[in-house]
Amino acid sequence: MKSSLIIFLWIALMTVGCGSKPPEKKPDAINIAFQGWIGYSPFYLGRDLGFFKDEGIELNIVNEQLDSARRDAFIAGMLDAEAGTLDLLVSKRGQGALIVSVMEIDYSFGADGIVAMDNIQTLADLKGKKVVLSKNDVSDMFLSYLFHEQGLSRDDVAVIAKRPDEVAAAFVNGEGDAAVTWEPELSAAAKRPGSRVFLTSKDQPGFIVDTLNVRQDLAVRNPDLVRRLMRGWFRSMRYAKEHPVEAARLTAKYYGITQAEYQNQIAGLKWVDYKEQNTPANFAKWRDVLNLIVSIKSGQAGSSSQINAVEVINPTLLQKLYENIR
């Protein structure tokens, strides 16, 4: 009797003891915003598959189409990170948003471009024409870059400014002779009869670079958090590359397109993997693109103040982040 009681009590204690768990560490919440660009889809993928959670990060993805809104959110400290193009980074930084670029995401390789009516054969033919685009956005910068390379002036074209997700619809409705946008809008715009995709980033690769940008104070105070975010990204990107069908199935819905359309549009970009970008030569090339953008912008009216490329793409910070990624 006595021994039975002792055994019963021991079993009860063990059960209670085993049942209790140590408290779990709360994951770090990161607010990240970006436009509806297909190259950012691995963020959705990684969030849904738990890759960021494995890094101890609760990723809150905010779909914010307007760069000015993201700028304001950065200034207010509400936004921690964004995925965006280098030209918009320059704009925001010039307008007071202290953000730095920490990682390359992709190069546009055909997914950005100009759709134009058939009578427009060269860039010079755009002179005197109306062009629909999202002003002060990557499309705006891309057009400026192309004109710059050809020695043309932006003043020779009239801009019809639209929200990024309205550019294609506006062009299809007959507004403008050309439109500058990115996929899926680019393909949608080319559905206007008598038009075709006239020129894409495949013809000018390396200029439209999407990067992961974070608040400067976050990168300095908590580089480990930024590193974990980057690690989650690389894992998600690898998964998307290795499982394209599955990636399409999981993320096409966030862009309102079919899985086949998703796979087709993914072919228009090149994700940059860890090995490819983690070299001094690549970091230098990255800053060169930024400097080019700054020089183009400095020639435009109402441009932002001078940007120091080394502050925005900081080699010391990058070295610290990249050396412990693996």
Partner: peptide, 8 residues
Amino acid sequence: SDDAYFLG
């Protein structure tokens, strides 16, 4: 011109 209330 780039503000949301104008574009939207």
